[in-house]
Amino acid sequence: MAKVRIPTPLQKLAENQAELEVSGTSVKEVLANLEAKYPGFQERLYDDKGQLRRFINFYVNEEDIRFADGEATILKEDDELSIVPAIAGG
């Protein structure tokens, strides 16, 4: 199980929870399982071509997955996956 941190704008999709326990051993698997439990994440996180949208940042613990193995980045027990939005106004 990995801990997934949900940004404020998406918490509505997950019954207003900021953190969820989701099973899976890679970023891709965890996001697929997240979608299965709370539909709506997939269309917001992926583009039409099935790629993670480039303006959303994903971190495993403190590391940006772009500098690891992207979607294939391995998640170990108790690792934390954060979905970090861009910063809004002002």
Partner: peptide, 10 residues
């Protein structure tokens, strides 16, 4: 809601 236009607000 989840966008990449930094500085703008949904």
């Amino acid at each position: 809601a989840l966008h990449g236009l930094e500085g703008l607000k949904h």
